[in-house]
Simulated assay, not measured.
Amino acid sequence: MLRLNRGTKVALGAVTVVVLGFLYIPMFVIVMNSFNSGRVSGWPIPGFSLEWWGKALTNPAMHAAFLNSVIVASVATAFALVLGTLAAFALQRFKFFGQNTVNLLIVLPITLPGIVTGVALSNTFHQVLKPMGIHVGYWGMIIAHATFCVVMVFNNVIARLRRMNPNLEEASADLGAGIGQTFRLITFPQFRPAFIAGGLLAFALSFDEIVVTIFTAPPGTETLPLWIMNQMGRPNEVNQVNVVATLMILLSLIPVYFSQRAQRADT
């Protein structure tokens, strides 16, 4: 067992406090400014008020942006769950030429800078597909989000498949169960926590994505991150942004919490 002297413990504690403060103090300032009685965001706040909460929660533009974010994230996650799981099974259960290359191509979108992915997809949609008469519109934004959401599901599922015991599936087949019954009763329950965790992480990643969305959102369409970015240029509306940011902080805790629970259940 590693033992640390008192000085080392104090130093590590101080570093931890500084790092946590750097991460969470700005969030605290945002939350407090959502209750700011002044018109301009700042610190310290002059007083407490619920005015900005009322304006933000009744703002139709914010409602539309929130709905767009939920729709895009939900559909992109649904695509990711299907495609990511199928890709994980294909790469784990079969050996074929170019397997490592396919694995690299699946993971590549999450490693590329978002601006590269956004520019590439925008050029494809407008300079290749549009001249051919194919207008992707709203679906183009969903497809763009699905490209990196697939990676989250794929990584979680394939990691679990590598740890699964194939003898259970063989025993199920020996006892007369078909492929579908074996998958439903034996295979899926074993990788279900990883499947759920990947889906939750994919939804969270899509919900707050902004760089790729800037390049692929159709004109006049805003997701919640885009709405926040646009409102930041209006000083008198920044406190509404603080309200929405506070709500997003709270909502973001939900998928992260359940994802961690699912991952712990998988270990």
Rank of each mutant, 00 (worst) to 15 (best):
T221L: 15
N123D: 13
M232L: 15
I25H: 03
G180Q: 00
A11F: 14
L4I: 08
R160N: 06
N242I: 01
S259E: 08
F94D: 01
V119Q: 03
G54D: 05
V72I: 15
P235M: 10
S252I: 01
L23D: 03
L104S: 13
Y257P: 02
R192L: 14
A120E: 06
F97T: 08
N156D: 09
N242Q: 11
A120S: 15
F35G: 06
M141I: 00
I45H: 04
T216L: 09
A159S: 14
G7T: 09
L224K: 05
P166R: 04
A159H: 08
I228H: 04
L253W: 09
L200I: 09
V256L: 15
I249R: 01
I71V: 13
L201R: 07
N36M: 05
M164Q: 10
A262N: 05
A87D: 05
E222L: 14
K9E: 14
E169G: 11
L112M: 15
I45A: 08
S252D: 11
I106R: 07
V72E: 08
H145E: 07
G176K: 09
L86D: 06
A204Q: 13
L108Y: 04
S37N: 11
L4A: 12
L2D: 13
V70D: 08
V151I: 06
V256E: 06
G176H: 10
Q190L: 12
G137V: 01
L86Y: 12
A80R: 02
S252P: 02
S172F: 10
W227Q: 12
G233D: 14
K130T: 09
N123C: 00
A197I: 02
G176M: 09
V72H: 02
R39P: 00
P46D: 03
N100P: 00
E209V: 07
F148A: 05
P26H: 07
L86P: 00
A90H: 00
N33C: 02
F96M: 05
M62Y: 15
F125M: 13
M152F: 15
I45Q: 01
M164Y: 06
W139E: 04
N242M: 15
V238N: 05
S34F: 03
V211S: 12
M141T: 05
T77L: 10
T58H: 14
V29P: 01
R93G: 02
L12Q: 13
